[in-house]
Design a protein around this nucleic acid. Structure first.
Length: 211
DNA sequence: CAGTCGATCTGCT
DNA sequence: GCAGATCGACTGA
């Protein structure tokens, strides 16, 4: 390896970093346990110009981390009960990042099972962004944390995986502009069993008031 | 397997 | 007030 730190390899728009992050390993090691996940699915968000991004409407208290330096973890709380985690990419201010959508538990299987009681199959432990965050024990306290320092370790592969093994398609859960095939910004390892099942983003139908 | 729905925080209107 | 980068439980085939 050259002297180029892995952090600098993240200082590009998320769509360019995506193939590099697939196959990488993220480890979280604290007093509640040590779990490592091999990333198999990510979703790119491109900052102020991306209607599907949290950064689209500018910087807020929640998304400040996205506007910072690459190589940090952006953790947000959503739907009243779930955490999701992004790897911040690009240069400071660009607010581009990769949502970690799915992975394979490669270390700390027992700890991951303890954190995620419901699934009957280990393949479901980190299948989906909120599940992955829960299996790794990620929460708002880790928002802004350095991915290359304790308690986190991000290990990038020496070289990106073979492009033939990578598939891409529309993002999940992003409705309207930015949710169609116009933006195929979801990337996954083809045929990997831990990749989350695709669900088309559908606008919710409001309940009728008069029941 | 596909469709539906509740849980309930955060930011914007 | 309301929609959202979701999940798990439930329903009907």
């Amino acid at each position: 390896m050259t002297a180029t730190p892995d952090r600098n390899r993240l200082a590009l728009p998320a769509t360019q970093v995506a193939p590099l992050l697939l196959g990488s390993t993220l480890t979280h090691d604290d007093d509640t346990g040590r779990v490592a996940v091999r990333i198999t699915e990510v979703e790119a968000y491109l900052g102020a110009d991306d209607p599907g991004s949290h950064a689209f409407r500018g910087q807020t208290a929640r998304n400040t981390t996205m506007f910072g330096n690459p190589g940090h973890l952006y953790v947000y709380f959503t739907y009243g009960m779930h955490y999701c985690a992004n790897v911040v990419c690009g240069e400071a201010g660009q607010a581009t990042g990769l949502l970690l959508r799915a992975g394979e538990i490669v270390e700390g299987l027992d700890v991951a099972r303890e954190r995620r009681k419901s699934p009957r199959h280990d393949v479901d432990l980190a299948r989906g962004p909120a599940r992955l965050a829960q299996a790794l024990g990620l929460n708002r306290k880790l928002d802004g944390a350095d991915l290359f320092a304790a308690p986190l370790t991000l290990a990038l592969p020496a070289a990106p995986v073979d492009p033939d093994l990578v598939s891409s398609g529309p993002r999940v859960g992003v409705a309207g502009v930015g949710g169609g095939s116009e933006y195929p910004w979801r990337y996954w390892l083809t045929d990997d069993p831990t990749v989350s099942r695709y669900r088309a983003a559908k606008p919710r139908i409001p309940r009728t008031v008069n029941g």
